[in-house]
Amino acid sequence: MPIDAAKALAAEPRTGDISWTTKDVQLYHLGIGAGANPDRPSPATDPGELRYTLESRLHVLPSFATVAGSGAPGVISGLSMPGVEVELAKVLHGGQTLEIHRPIPAEGTARATNRLAAVYDKGKAAILVLRTEVADADGPLWTNDAQIFVRGEGGWGGDRGPSTRLDPPVGEPDLSVERPIREDQALLYRLCGDWNPLHADPDFARHAGFDRPILHGLCTYGITLKAVVDTLLGGDVSRVRSYTTRFAGVVFPGETLRIRMWQGKGSVRVAVSAAERGDAPVLADTIVQYS
């Protein structure tokens, strides 16, 4: 069996220093569409967009934590952990949970600790949960849990894990917005550190079962959080406390995301779909908690 659950869970955590600059933050924001918000007139110079793109007034969207310092640790790094030997073409990002302990500085150095927190047997697939905890000299900054879905690697009789499915939101959404995805969006976003060829190489994408390269799930994740912050949280990135989602379907560059939001007390339920494909689900079971 390519995944040795006992060995993977017993492995020592991997710890190392990471750092980022304002340029890294700006590149991430551009990679998720900052400066091109269709809801704003002249978005490239709108103050609401400049807070994501201009170094003199830079605010850090919390989802930057998924790429800070070392690129997308949830998929590529998780496959190099002890006890895990799987083919990259069988791997998909299944879900992401982010807890923000305090606002992320626009530049900094921190210590990141990575470990496999869980390995679940789903029968025809396995799910690896890679936990990344990051702290700087002033204390904890964020905790990331990436759920890595590995096709064809289950069936050893292990723990199936908890269900992450939620009941659908009730009633009509409080707000619905659309965000177009550029044809070159994945090529730009991958410069943030996720070099998986699934998002750029047509031959690799076909080998993985897709007609053409797909957008990074974490790019959709960032686009969605930005839409919530810009519309329901007054543009204040510091209000985000946690953000969780399940990747329910793929996005192809050139499509349009339809982002529906239901606002509650201290939380926003979100559903994201691909508008041109009959609102095919993209992100599900999505919650942003805020102060």
Results as ranks from 00 to 15, higher is better:
Asp201Phe: 02
Arg179Asn: 04
Thr231Met: 10
Lys226Val: 01
Glu172Met: 06
Gln185His: 13
Asp236Cys: 03
Ala208Asp: 01
Cys219Gly: 04
Ile214Val: 13
Ala205Asn: 03
Leu191Asn: 09
Ser176Ile: 13
Gly209Arg: 14
Arg212Pro: 00
Asp236Lys: 04
Gly222Tyr: 06
Pro202Glu: 11
Val177Phe: 02
Arg182Pro: 06
Gly217Pro: 05
Glu183Tyr: 14
Leu175Val: 07
Cys192Asn: 15
Phe210Asn: 04
Leu232Gly: 02
Ala208Leu: 02
Asp174Phe: 14
Asp236Pro: 01
Ala200Ile: 13
Asp203Leu: 10
Leu191Gly: 10
Gly217Ser: 07
Pro169Asn: 12
His199Leu: 11
Val229Thr: 11
Arg206Val: 02
Glu178Pro: 00
Thr224Leu: 15
Leu218Phe: 09
Gly193Leu: 02
Cys219His: 04
Arg212Glu: 05
Val177Arg: 09
Ala200Tyr: 11
Leu191Val: 08
Thr224Ser: 15
Tyr221Ile: 02
Leu233Asn: 05
Leu225Ser: 03
Gly222Glu: 06
Asp201Cys: 03
Gln185Ile: 05
Thr224Tyr: 14
Pro173Ile: 12
Pro202Trp: 12
Pro173Cys: 10
Glu178Trp: 00
Arg182Val: 03
Arg190Gly: 10
Arg190Leu: 13
Pro197Ala: 05
Leu191Trp: 09
Pro169Thr: 09
Ala227Glu: 08
Asp194Ser: 05
Thr231Gly: 12
Asp203Phe: 04
Gly209Val: 13
Ile223Asp: 01
His216Ser: 11
Val170Glu: 15
Gly234Gln: 01
Asn196Trp: 02
Asp201Lys: 01
Gly222Asp: 06
Gly235Val: 03
Phe210Cys: 03
Tyr189Gly: 07
His216Pro: 07
Pro202Met: 10
Leu233Trp: 06
Phe204His: 06
Ile223Trp: 01
Gln185Tyr: 03
Val177Glu: 01
Val170Leu: 14
Arg179Cys: 07
Asp184Lys: 05
Gly209Trp: 14
Leu187Gly: 15
Glu172Ile: 06
Trp195Asn: 11
Asp201Ser: 02
Arg190Ala: 12
His199Gly: 12
Cys192Glu: 10
Asp211Lys: 07
Thr231Trp: 06
Thr224Glu: 14
Leu191His: 11
His207Ser: 07
Pro169Ile: 08
Asp230His: 15
Asp203Gln: 11
Lys226Leu: 01
Asp184Glu: 10
Trp195Gly: 05
Asp201Leu: 02
Glu178Asp: 04
Pro173Phe: 09
Pro197Leu: 02
